[in-house]
């Protein structure tokens, strides 16, 4: 592309800036690792899973660092949110594309986009003052696994819906016309033509939704109750890994602080795996 010598400095300038943008991720990982090393060296990764409880403030010897209840909390909250948001999100996308009249479909899409634009702290606030009291009336204490699941489902529904919809739109029109010509019913077309064709994209949408759910902090922090325990039912309070960081980083010292960075690294690893998996699935699928 280069034509004139005066363009070389421009390109090198752009390359240097782009390199800076590309290094930020490395910088993040580097600093997480630097901060996590003290805990990894003296506490060791094993104790994060075998210690009797999470009481990290007592120093390396007296303190205990069991993360399992919080990991379970994160997994349960994410799984629950996905179980609700995936069917609703996919159905919403199908509704927009194949059921709603054109205008209504557009309106509905706008509404979902608005839903996506509401800040997580506002969802958390609404969950805290409206949803949690409702659930308290039914089964105290109100701030619970269930509340967190419901709020989180609401938050990731737009992600699942908008990404699925863009996949549905890429399903070739000729497939649908052909199916129509065969006299198939609308649902039969969706079931036998649309969904199989769009499967890769829909799975990606759900995985990216799961990624958001794992990483979400504020909404969960405000409605989940934040007790470090294995929840024995849907109405028990739980604490997730993300909420734990938000609650404790403010006063954590020494190994406690370092342990929180270890959990940050774990979060990062989970997200990278989910996103990587999502991309891998999508790439393995060919649209035409």
């Amino acid at each position: 592309m280069s034509r004139l010598p005066s363009d070389t400095p421009l390109k090198w300038g752009l390359r240097i800036i782009a390199a800076i943008a590309g290094t930020i991720v490395l910088l993040i990982v580097l600093f997480l690792v630097i901060e996590a090393i003290p805990a990894l060296q003296t506490v060791g990764l094993k104790r994060f899973f075998t210690d009797p409880s999470w009481h990290p403030a007592g120093g390396t010897e007296a303190g205990t660092f069991n993360l399992i209840p919080m990991l379970v909390g994160t997994i349960l909250v994410t799984a629950g949110a996905i179980l609700i948001a995936a069917p609703l999100g996919i159905a919403s996308a199908l509704f927009c594309q194949y059921y709603a009249p054109l205008r209504l479909g557009k309106l509905y899409r706008h509404l979902i986009e608005l839903l996506a634009g509401i800040p997580s702290v506002v969802y958390g606030f609404w969950g805290l003052v409206v949803l949690a009291p409702l659930i308290r009336q039914w089964q105290p204490p109100g701030q619970s696994l269930l509340t967190a699941i419901l709020i989180l489902a609401l938050m990731i529904l737009p992600t699942v819906m908008l990404l699925s919809e863009s996949t549905l739109r890429s399903v070739s029109h000729s497939y649908i016309q052909a199916a129509n010509a065969l006299g198939l019913s609308r649902w039969a077309i969706i079931q036998s033509v649309v969904l199989p064709t769009a499967r890769g994209g829909i799975i990606t949408a759900v995985l990216l939704g799961a990624g958001r759910a794992v990483g979400e902090t504020m909404a969960v922090l405000m409605v989940a109750g934040n007790v470090v325990q294995m929840p024995d039912n849907l109405f028990a309070p739980v604490r997730t890994i993300t909420a734990n960081i938000a609650l404790e980083l403010g006063y954590a010292m020494d190994h406690h602080r370092s342990a929180l960075f270890v959990t940050g690294l774990m979060l990062m690893a989970i997200i990278v795996m989910l996103v990587g998996f999502a991309h891998w699935i999508n790439k393995g699928h060919v649209y035409d």
Binding site: A21, I28, T217, M268, V275
Partner: peptide
């Protein structure tokens, strides 16, 4: 690298 950055949870940005 930007794809990974886009997926980093906000609390991890807070830690960093």
């Amino acid at each position: 690298s930007l794809d990974v950055l886009a997926g980093v949870p906000s609390i991890v940005f807070g830690l960093f």
